[in-house]
């Protein structure tokens, strides 16, 4: 790397990580107001363990994201399998809809979904939140799986056919295992996106039922809250672990490629 490149990358790295580093440092700071001077303390972590509302919200988020990931991955993978075999305008249309879902602000999508649910009569609710989250997360799953399916070597499948496997068999025995890393990867992606999705949950969950982002939001609105720092640090750690897991899956798919 040239000197200029080094400077650029370091500065941008600093900008990217500044808020997180500050939060992590502050999680160990005794001060109640997020100010200096700094004195080391783990009291906010123990405070975190005692905060029922944060823990309940976290478990809600985990369950919700798990369910959403399961549904979205199943529906999304099926959709992707269909999509790669389509060459007509329908394919382009579905691409367009998926793209729109990603590009349109969740604010607008959230309201639109709420209105449909109100129309049907369900209104706000856990079910609404699940369906809404699935809709929003679906494009990510579809695009990831589609990319992998497209990249699969056609020769492998044809080799299977020439050796006597039927369409269904070659799908199950060859295509699915080869695409599995991407399917699992997209499941993780779905989990993460749903876990962190504030907007959709804000509009579709019943008032008073809070997932983690909503809980953090309501606490933060009143100002500085040190337990949140501790929580953020924990979440960051979890995210790093999940990312490393994704990496391993990526490496796994390389094994299949050889």
């Amino acid at each position: 790397m040239t000197k200029a490149q080094r400077i650029v990358v370091s500065s941008v790295g600093l900008i990217l990580y500044a808020p997180l580093i500050v939060v992590i440092i502050m999680s160990f700071n005794r001060s109640l107001y997020g100010t200096f001077p700094f004195s080391f303390s783990l009291k906010w972590y123990s405070h975190l363990l005692k905060s029922d509302d944060l823990l309940i919200a976290s478990s809600r988020s985990i369950w919700l994201s798990f369910g959403v990931a399961l549904l979205a991955t199943t529906i999304g993978t099926m959709f992707a399998v269909w999509r790669v075999s389509v060459k007509s305008v329908t394919g382009l249309a579905s691409d367009g809809i998926l793209l729109a879902t990603v590009a349109i602000p969740w604010l607008i999508l959230g309201i639109a979904m709420l209105q449909i649910f109100n129309l049907i009569g369900i209104g706000r609710g856990i079910v609404s939140a699940v369906i809404g989250n699935v809709a929003v997360v679906l494009p990510y799953v579809v695009f990831v799986v589609m990319a992998r399916l497209r990249g699969l070597d056609e020769n492998l499948i044809e080799a299977g056919r020439s050796l006597g496997a039927t369409q269904l068999k070659s799908f199950c025995r060859i295509t699915v295992p080869l695409a599995m890393p991407s399917i699992l990867g997209s499941a993780l992606l779905a989990f993460v996106v749903c876990f962190n999705n504030f907007t959709i949950q804000y509009f579709l969950l019943p008032l008073g039922v809070r997932t983690l982002p909503l809980e953090i939001y309501s606490q933060v609105r009143t100002g500085y809250s040190p337990a949140i720092n501790a929580l953020a640090t924990v979440v960051l750690l979890g995210t790093v672990l999940i990312s490393l897991l994704l990496e391993r899956l990526g490496a796994g798919s390389k094994r299949f490629r050889d």
């Binding site: 500044a18 808020p19 997180l20 500050v22 939060v23 440092i25 502050m26 107001y33 997020g34 100010t35 200096f36 993460v192 876990f195 962190n196 504030f198 983690l212 982002p213 953090i216 939001y217 933060v220 500085y224 949140i228 720092n229 929580l231 953020a232 979440v235 960051l236 995210t239 999940i242 990312s243």
Partner: peptide, 21 residues
């Protein structure tokens, strides 16, 4: 990959008066 809310909060802490920045 960390929630946007947490990032916003991080910014909040970063920019606060008498805070680190």
């Amino acid at each position: 990959l960390v929630s946007t809310i947490l990032l916003i909060y991080g910014f909040f802490v970063l920019l606060a008066g008498n805070g680190p920045l």
